[in-house]
């Protein structure tokens, strides 16, 4: 299936009229349907993956749970609880239906319903992630914008080089090292902030910072590149020709285009943030999903593991969906692209 290669000195391409045939509502409907189909597909994939997880465990999962020294009778009890002796399809059906009803089973280590455990721990994880997101946006975006404008004007070469070097260095810092260093500096040496966190607002600052520092550096880099590129576009010349103030130019012409082009990449960073939160919780000893899942893996507490992975996966997907919607609102051209993301 050959693709048509045309040069960039394009003659007017008539695809525009197709757009006029569809009202905005129809476009949105089609776009949302596509995205929702994606969400459904991922949820399905998550369910299958978490289900298969237990199936693929080498040896006897029940044995892993109760330990090497336990008796066969104890193992069998657990096997019955996990329905491991039922045919695979029955197990799948049991699993899917209970999950969809909101029952994620009971933790073997704490005997607590998994849903309850998640409900308790999710807010903490979410707080760190959201805190990280705020830092990411507050630091990464304006910094990148400012340096992008500076770079385009051709002045302050040293500042831009410092920026490039700085973002490369900070962007390479893993969140656990950042966390460790932050504890060292702010928690122990300077004693400004608590080293173990989660409880209070102050306890969230360091973890959020640890999670967000490297992504913020990367985001600043991306925003810088995009801003610089956009400032070179012809419509900026058109806008300059209108002799509007620089501030107005940046707000009405540069900003909307930078946001749309960085939003997709920003979305990926956001999801990576979620992953980073899992690790950082272990650095700061925060009682969130991150610490819980590590313990659960050691204890082979499969119901907990399945539940947490499901929830984390769904969170990531939801974030993706929200970003797609925001993108659709900001940039209607996105609505035209067919297919799932």
């Amino acid at each position: 299936m050959a693709g048509v290669q045309t040069l960039t000195t394009q003659r007017s391409s008539p695809g525009w009229s197709r757009l006029l045939r569809h009202s905005a509502f129809q476009q949105w409907a089609r776009y949302l349907a596509g995205r929702l189909a994606g969400v459904v597909a991922i949820t399905l994939a998550l369910l299958i993956m978490t289900f298969l997880m237990v199936q693929f465990v080498p040896g006897d999962p029940a044995r892993n749970i109760v330990g090497i020294t336990a008796t066969q009778a104890q193992v069998d009890v657990v096997r019955a609880q996990l329905h491991l002796d039922d045919p695979v399809l029955t197990q799948a059906w049991t699993y899917f239906s209970s999950v969809l009803q909101g029952n994620l089973g009971k933790s073997f280590t704490t005997q607590q319903p998994v849903v309850e455990m998640i409900a308790q721990r999710l807010p903490l994880t979410a707080s760190v992630a959201v805190g990280g997101l705020i830092i990411l946006l507050v630091i990464g975006f304006p910094l990148g914008l400012a340096i992008g404008v500076l770079q385009r004007s051709g002045r302050a070469a040293r500042t831009t080089t410092a920026f490039t070097v700085g973002t490369s260095l900070f962007g390479a810092l893993p969140e656990y090292i950042t966390g460790t260093l932050l504890i060292l500096v702010f928690g122990l040496t300077l004693r400004w902030l608590p080293a173990q966190g989660g409880e209070s607002f102050q306890g969230l600052i360091l973890p959020a910072l640890a999670v967000a520092l490297a992504p913020a550096a990367v985001m600043a880099r991306i925003v810088r590149n995009e801003t610089s590129a956009i400032l070179g576009e012809e419509y900026i010349s058109t806008a300059r020709g209108k002799r509007i103030s620089t501030v107005r130019l940046l707000i009405t012409h540069v900003f909307p285009n930078v946001v749309t082009s960085t939003l997709t990449l920003g979305g990926l960073l956001l999801i990576a943030l979620l992953g980073g939160t899992v690790i950082v919780e272990n650095v700061f000893n925060i009682a969130g999903l991150g610490t819980q899942i590590v313990q659960a893996i050691f204890a082979s507490d499969y119901p907990s593991i399945q539940g947490i992975i499901l929830v984390l996966g769904l969170l990531a997907t939801l974030v993706s969906l929200v970003i797609d919607i925001v993108l659709g609102i900001l940039d209607p051209r996105v609505l035209q692209k067919n297919g799932l993301k």
Binding site: G38, A41, I42, A45, M49, T50, M53, F56, V57, P58, N64, G267, L268, I271, A272, L274, G275, G276, V278, I279, I293, A296, I297, F298, S300, Y302, I305, I309, L312, G313, A316, S320, G339, L340, K341
Partner: peptide, 24 residues
């Protein structure tokens, strides 16, 4: 499309799943 979906997932979640299956 499937590949696109999986690229967006945090690798950490996949990694955790597999470690859960095969023991750390």
């Amino acid at each position: 499309r499937a590949i696109d979906l999986f690229v967006a997932w945090p690798p950490i979640i996949v990694a955790l799943t597999i470690t859960a299956i095969f023991r750390p």
